Amino acid sequence: MPRINAATVAEHRARQRRAVLDAARDLLAETGQAPSLADVGARAGLARSSVYEYARSRDDLLAAVVADVLPSWAQRIQDAMAQAPTPGARVWAYVEANVAFFAGDEQRVARALGSVVDPAVLSGPMQEFHAALQEPLRAALREHGEPEPDAVADVVDAMILSATKSARARQRPSDPAERTAILDPLRRLLGPYLGLARDRSGCSSPAAEGSTQ
């Protein structure tokens, strides 16, 4: 009888767990409701008994989704900031990445999680998510020369929330034109402060020429 390779088994389980989490996330985005384990199994192409290996109940499944998607979303925004060449460009990358979040499928998942997950389960991960985003934003503002990075970070977040209000209310992802309409006024307001280069239309572009501070 051939020996079972432990690494192969671990890789197989990791793929199945990923399939379960992705299926649950997709169903949350589509329905706005907590999916059943049977529905998740059907979407993932797994038997319900296989799903039970990774979640014993809907609450377990939702907690696993929260633990999976929040760090992933934070990492995506952090990665976008890390690729920007200057502090001002990093702040703008934060703005763009958050607009992409609020205008995309992720917002539907976040809205669904907020309505179906026990607040006690969601509270801790949400605080960690917020901290994971605020720390690099405030660091970029400090490097940009901002004397009050905490206050300005709050202003930037308030501007993003105001600009994405319509997008967050939609039951679908925003199309490219709608995203551009969100970003353009933010770019006009923040571009001069962040030292962003101007494109041919006169709007500040994401590529920064350097800090103005």
Rank of each mutant, 00 (worst) to 15 (best):
R179Y: 00
V155S: 02
R18V: 00
L161W: 14
D175V: 03
L190Y: 06
A110I: 04
R3M: 13
V65W: 00
A44I: 01
P149F: 10
S211R: 03
G104P: 08
P149G: 07
P176F: 01
A44T: 02
D68M: 00
R200G: 12
A14R: 15
A140D: 03
A140K: 03
Y193L: 01
T164S: 12
M1H: 14
E30V: 13
E11L: 10
T164N: 07
D39M: 07
A34R: 08
R179G: 01
P206L: 01
L21T: 02
D68T: 00
K165V: 09
S204N: 12
R172C: 04
G104I: 08
D105Q: 10
A208T: 11
A63Y: 04
R90Y: 09
V95L: 13
G191H: 08
A167Q: 11
E178T: 12
P87H: 13
A10L: 15
R76A: 14
A97M: 03
R48Q: 13
D60F: 01
A131I: 00
M81R: 11
V121R: 10
P125M: 02
V95G: 09
L141Y: 07
A14Q: 13
G114M: 05
E135N: 07
R200H: 09
V69T: 00
L196N: 10
F102I: 02
P176K: 05
H130S: 10
F129N: 04
A139L: 04
L61D: 02
E30M: 11
D199F: 03
L161Y: 15
S204E: 09
T180V: 12
A19C: 00
G195E: 06
S162H: 15
A42K: 14
R172N: 07
M126T: 12
L62V: 01
P35F: 09
V20L: 05
C203G: 05
M159K: 03
Y54V: 05
T31N: 13
L46K: 01
R13H: 15
W92Y: 09
Q134K: 08
A139D: 10
A132Q: 04
G195S: 05
R170C: 08
H144G: 00
A47D: 13
A24D: 05
R48L: 08
A151T: 15
T212L: 03
E143R: 13
V156Y: 05
V117P: 01
R56K: 09
D79L: 14
L186N: 03
S123P: 02
H130I: 06
V156P: 04
Y52H: 14
V156S: 04
M159D: 14
A14D: 10
D118Q: 00
W73D: 02
A140M: 06
I160T: 03
A64R: 04
D157H: 12
